[in-house]
Design a protein around this nucleic acid. Structure first.
Length: 576
DNA sequence: GCCGTTTTCGGCCCGACTGTTTTCAGTCG
């Protein structure tokens, strides 16, 4: 059972306890433990073996014992007893909009509702409107919400798609009368790998007018809630959009609030409390009821004695403690990137010639580019034979002469890690290449031991410089390979093998928490685009975002180095 | 149930919005 499955279990426990009417702080403790598990890159299994389960933030003695029991026996007695009291099917009801634990408990106790179907039936039969505090309107809303829940699949969208939508909204809102500032907030601003809703914050002199104008946008399908400072709608593509409109002197507070994360904000409010302040989306309230308004987001942090915290760090993963100690990382940024170390040409499955890729790299201000086409076994991608590689070297030499010193080209390959282990070219061929990326595309579903051993074997090969998109996941489409991450990172650190942070928004592989763990263990990374087309070079901001979420500073990213340094590093390596 | 530059016990974030209410509970982020 992995950390995510454990987290799901504790979330279920929290929900069941809440339906049961348990004390709220105990419930929150389970939720925090769940968050801690999701944010922790080291498997609970590993921590259990070392007796270090309480290292996970939010996990104390009692929850550590529960994790231990689940890992040892596969079951949890506490959970079994809990579900004997509260039917676990009630958890389905919580997925219905505006149905929470209190209502679920009442439907259960007063109407005998246990499943979603029961609830729908009760609503259709008009039994909900009979309950105290309910009416025909709330009954209708429940039916509508059940219908909506059944109809669409609630999958989060890719960050690239969300960004496109948000940019367009921001452009149109900015053009509205009285609008002073517009910013994207929420998980998109934090550059999370997937996005569940769009959050946009507006500073305007006439908030109500702005809200009215936005509500008239044609792609708004449904208004979910509408007030003086906030509106929540559903777009025609089923994505929720939330809009906050505040006067300019409160814009900083509103932006900070809407950016989140939820847990980061909770921590900030706790900190404010200790300083005798109360923090909300409007600003700070002092104990004497006077206010501190924040026009800039930085003012919010400053009032708490903190430096501004970059949005990508705001996940309650230790950033506030680091800020208090003035130990925030100097995060890598797009400006730091000097080259691309993973790109394809039409020699394999890339869409354009080597020369066109080079021109595109140059246009984007890069000073070096590695052409790393697929190796011979990847037939579907037109992998190169050993003979092809030699011809490609000649072509690269020709293009290099034309490019002069403006752009330096490495000849590399993205070499298959074969199903049975080993690499797709013999060492004698690998030795001739400037850079070797080893990647998995086949046999991703092998058992953990086998697939982990293949990666470890690649890392041990003296000619391998980098592991590409380690887990092979495609977000929302293909699960990551079942890898034992910890020994892989230790071996990569030991052998000086670079771990790629793949910027393709479908991959983002390594993911944020793995990036952070890799760094802790002393690994080098490279933020690559894996471009198969010139346009793909523009994926990089997503990889940068993932790196920043992994607390990456510039120096540990190899493609922030100058060409000479990278060249020297790669040569040193292939002789080791 | 967790946790500690005021605490090993006593705290634990905050407000907008809705539907049902004559003052508020529940949900959401």
């Amino acid at each position: 059972m992995d950390n995510h499955e454990l987290a799901d279990k504790f979330d279920a426990i929290a929900d069941l306890l809440e339906i049961k009417g348990e004390e709220i702080y105990r419930i929150r403790a389970y939720r925090r433990a769940s968050e801690g598990l999701r944010s922790h890159a080291v498997d609970a299994q590993d921590l259990q073996e070392r007796g270090e389960l309480e290292e996970i933030p939010g996990v104390g003695k009692a929850i550590a014992e529960k994790i231990d029991e689940i890992l040892r026996t596969g079951d949890l007695d506490f959970y079994e007893r809990l579900t004997a009291e509260v039917p676990p099917t009630l958890l389905e009801l919580l997925d219905v909009e505006n149905v929470g634990p209190k209502k679920a408990a009442r439907f259960w106790n007063e109407l005998g509702v246990v499943t979603l179907e029961d609830l729908e039936e009760a609503a259709r039969e008009g039994r909900i409107r009979e309950m105290d505090g309910f009416g025909a309107k709330s009954e209708g809303k429940i039916l509508e919400a059940i219908d909506a829940y059944k109809k669409h699949d609630h999958t989060r969208i890719l960050i690239s798609e969300a960004k496109g939508l948000a940019v367009e909204f921001v452009r149109r809102i900015r053009a509205l009368d009285g609008v002073v500032e517009v910013e994207v907030a929420g998980s998109l601003r934090r550059l999370k790998e997937t996005i569940g809703d769009l959050d946009i914050v507006v500073a305007a002199t006439n908030p109500q007018k702005v809200i009215d104008s936005v509500l008239a946008f044609p792609e708004i399908k449904k208004i979910r809630a509408q007030g003086d400072v906030k509106v929540s709608v559903l777009l025609s593509n089923e994505l929720p959009l939330q809009l906050w409109v505040h006067p300019p002197d409160r814009f900083g507070s509103a932006l900070q609030y809407a950016t989140g994360s939820q847990m980061h904000n909770v921590r900030l409010r706790e900190l404010a409390q200790k300083g005798g302040l109360s923090l909300s989306e409007h600003g700070f309230m002092r104990e004497d009821e006077t206010e501190i308004n924040c026009a800039e987001e930085m003012d919010v942090y400053a009032a708490l004695g903190l430096p501004w915290i970059p949005p990508q760090l705001r996940e309650d993963r230790g950033e506030i403690t680091a800020a208090l100690a003035d130990e925030l990382p100097e995060l890598v940024s797009s400006d730091d990137i000097r080259g691309e170390l993973h790109a394809h040409s039409d020699w394999s499955d890339g869409k354009v010639s080597i020369e066109e890729m080079c021109s595109a790299a140059l246009e984007r201000g890069l000073s070096y580019l590695a052409i790393t086409d697929h190796s011979r076994s990847l037939n579907i991608a037109g992998g190169l034979s050993i003979e092809d590689l030699k011809k490609q070297r000649e072509e690269i030499n020709r293009v290099q002469r034309r490019m002069g010193d403006k752009l330096k080209i490495f000849q590399g390959a993205e070499v298959e890690i074969l199903r049975e282990g080993g690499l797709d070219y013999p060492d004698s061929v690998l030795a001739e290449l400037d850079i070797v990326i080893a990647s998995l595309h086949m046999g991703l579903r092998q058992p953990r031991e086998e697939v982990t051993a293949r990666i470890l074997g690649a890392i041990e090969n003296p000619y391998v410089d980098m592991i590409g998109h380690l887990t092979g996941r495609l977000i929302g489409r293909r699960d990551p390979a079942d890898l034992d991450i910890e020994p892989i990172f230790r071996a990569a650190a030991d052998r000086g093998v670079i771990l790629e942070i793949n910027s393709n928004p479908e991959r983002l592989d390594l993911k944020d928490i793995h990036v952070r763990r890799a760094l802790e263990l002393g690994c080098l990374t490279a933020i690559n685009t894996d471009a198969h087309h010139p346009d793909h070079l523009d994926f990089r901001p997503f990889g940068i975002g993932t790196a920043r979420r992994g607390w990456v500073e510039g120096r540990s990213v190899v493609n922030t180095w100058k060409f000479k340094e990278v060249e020297k590093w790669l040569k040193r390596k292939s002789r080791s």
